[in-house]
Each structure stands twice: as structure tokens, then as C-alpha cells.
């Protein structure tokens, strides 16, 4: 593990202690900005820390452990888009705003937005799974041949919250009805816009993968602790081999997936599909862990009072965000088939 990454894990654990799940967004979002984490992927010449993907992933991993409610994932995507925004008027000031706590959000599932260009650029369509739109000033829209910022209070923009099973995350539908893009808010066009979209999609995969394995690690630790403490038949549940073996298998899956996560996180040559594959793996391992975690907690696992269900709901959501397990598995299969041609 790199020194930077070790330090980031430690710093995040101190800022977000393991025993405080679902920390309030009102306090944790400013704390994240204060910690300087929004500067992590920003190149040094743009005033950032210029650290690799593994650094951001380390923070996402730790925030996954505590079921963070703060919109770090979309915020870091926006920062990276702005850093690459050749077309954007006043780029430096936008970067300044986005790295000091003004939230520019984006959609965590790809959207089909229609772009028409007759003198002015007009956008129509619905962006699903826009994170924390209630807190954001703008949404970054990635459409065919265009990346642009859209003010959430602009004409032709409707923001509708979609109530989730996972109450630790807030997602919105943002509907654009013939929204006229402000020319100064165009981030990139053509091939440059395509490159940004492709890169951000990959970054999203890695962020979700890291968050998922952080969550899986915490949910498994919570389950093991419960099994060691809870007694039935005059002994701790952890003594039953039938349960031990299930836990050992879960631990094996989490640790092995994590090894691949950190390997991919430092691979410059990792393709979008490689990153999608690690997200598919990580979210599926998260699903497996929480599925078992509820069962191993028994009756208490079905109560609202016990927090283990929160991890289950986050895991199920992560399976879908950034595109589904099936989608990424199929693409991984196609990529490998082509590679072994």
C-alpha cells in the first residue's frame, strides 16, 4: 500500500469513526471539503493534489464503511470533468467552487438526453439517479458529443426526489424539458466530451467498487462481532462450525475482491470494462455479505433498530448504480472474447 493511501485510510477513519453510521449530511459534507478530499484527483497544476485513483478509492472505501450520506462520488466526478473542461469559460473559478464545497452533482446511471442544436443547444430528457440534487447548484450533463453544466433552478429543469429503500443516499430524477444550455456552461464538445464521459464512467465504477467493499468489510465485521457475543445453547454462536464456515467464505470473498480493487486502482491501462468488472464483482460481494449478514443476525436483523439492514439496502442499490451486474459481466465477457481472438 502506498504511503499516501495508508494516510488517507487513517485520516478518513478518524474523521468518520466506525461507530457512527449514516453521519448527518449537513455536517459530513462540509467536513469532506475541509479535509481537502475534493482536491485528491485534481492535477497539481490546477491547484489539486494530483493523486492517483487509488487515493480517491481509499476515501470511498472508508466512507462506505460508515454508510456516508455525503455526495463525494458525484462531486469528485464533477471536479474531474471541470479539470478537463477546455471549453468552459472561467474554468479556474469553477474548479475553485467545486473543490470548496459547492456541490455540482451528476447522474449515477447513464441517461439518454436528446441534444438539438439550432443556433442554441437544447437538452431534453430525464437524468435518473442524480445524487443530492437538493444540495447542488448544478448538474453535470453528459450527452452525445456534449458535456455541460445545467443550473438546477433554470427554466425547463424539474427536480423530483425518488424515495429509496436506502435512506443513507438521496437520488433525484432531473427532467430537462427543452432546456437551453447557457453557452458559458458548456464543458466540452465532440470527442473531448466523449472522452470525459468515458473517463467519468470508469471513475464511477471504481468509486462504487471501493464503497461497496468498504461496506462489505464493515457489515462482515459487525456480523462477526454479533456471532461472538450472542449466545444460544450455552455457547456463542461463533462456536458453531456451520456458521464459522459461512463467515470464512464471506471473508475470503471480501479479501480477494479487495486485492483486485487495489490492483485495478493503480493500473493506468485499465479499460472502462475492467473498471466495470471490478464494480460488478465488488457490488456482488457486498450483496452476498449483506444477504448472509441479515440471516446470521437472526430476528434482530429484521428490525429497523439494528443497523445491519442499512448495509443491505446500500448493497442492493450499488448493484444497480453505474449500470448493472449483468451489463458489466456481458461486456467483460465480450472484451475477453475479443482479447483471446
Amino acid at each position: 500500500m502506498s504511503i499516501e493511501r495508508t494516510e488517507l485510510h487513517d485520516a478518513a477513519q478518524k474523521a468518520f469513526p466506525a461507530d457512527q453510521l449514516k453521519p448527518a449530511r449537513e455536517t459530513s459534507w462540509p467536513l469532506i471539503a475541509e479535509m481537502g478530499w475534493l482536491l485528491l484527483p485534481l492535477p497539481e497544476d490546477a491547484g489539486g493534489l494530483g493523486l492517483g485513483r487509488d487515493s480517491s478509492a481509499a476515501i470511498h472505501f472508508e466512507l462506505g464503511k460508515v454508510l456516508s450520506t455525503a455526495p463525494l462520488i458525484p462531486a469528485l466526478l464533477a471536479v474531474q470533468a471541470l479539470a478537463a473542461a477546455d471549453e468552459l469559460a472561467d474554468q479556474a473559478s469553477w474548479i475553485e467552487r467545486a473543490t470548496t464545497g459547492e456541490l455540482i452533482t451528476t447522474n449515477l446511471l447513464p441517461a439518454a438526453v436528446e441534444v438539438t442544436n439550432s443556433g442554441s443547444i437544447v437538452l431534453s430528457g430525464t437524468l435518473p439517479c442524480v445524487a443530492d440534487a437538493d444540495l447542488a447548484s448544478h448538474v453535470l450533463v453528459l450527452a452525445k458529443g456534449l458535456a455541460a453544466l445545467v443550473p438546477l433552478d433554470a427554466a425547463g429543469v424539474t427536480v423530483t426526489e425518488r424515495k429509496l429503500w436506502d435512506e443513507s443516499r438521496r437520488l433525484f430524477d432531473v427532467t430537462l424539458a427543452n432546456h437551453q444550455v447557457v453557452p458559458e456552461l458548456v464543458v466540452a464538445r465532440g470527442e473531448a466530451a466523449h472522452e470525459i464521459a468515458e473517463r467519468l464512467h470508469g471513475e464511477l465504477q471504481l468509486a462504487l467498487a471501493a464503497e461497496s467493499l468498504g461496506g462489505a468489510t464493515a457489515a462482515l465485521a459487525m456480523t462477526i462481532e454479533y456471532l461472538k457475543t450472542r449466545k444460544q445453547f450455552d455457547r456463542p454462536l461463533a462456536m458453531f462450525q456451520a456458521l464459522k464456515h459461512r463467515v470464512a467464505d464471506l471473508k475470503t470473498r471480501v479479501v480477494a475482491a479487495e486485492a483486485l480493487l487495489w490492483k485495478r486502482a493503480v493500473e493506468a491501462e485499465a479499460t472502462l470494462v475492467d473498471l466495470g468488472a471490478i464494480k460488478a464483482l465488488a457490488s456482488d460481494v457486498y450483496r452476498l455479505v449483506v444477504e448472509e449478514a441479515i440471516q446470521l443476525h437472526g430476528g434482530i436483523g429484521l428490525t429497523e433498530e439494528h443497523p445491519i439492514h442499512l448495509f443491505m439496502k446500500r448493497a442492493m442499490l450499488n448493484l444497480q448504480l453505474g449500470e448493472s451486474l449483468d451489463t458489466w459481466r456481458e461486456r467483460t465477457g465480450r472484451q475477453a472474447l475479443a482479447a483471446f481472438a
Partner: peptide, 15 residues
């Protein structure tokens, strides 16, 4: 089949 193959590829990478 492609999904199953893709899943196996990732599992091999994981190993």
C-alpha cells in the same frame, strides 16, 4: 454465456 464467461474472467483476475 457471455455473462458467465465475463464473471469467470473477473474471478480469475481476482485469484
Amino acid at each position: 454465456v457471455l455473462r458467465d464467461f465475463g464473471q469467470l474472467v473477473t474471478r480469475c483476475d481476482e485469484a
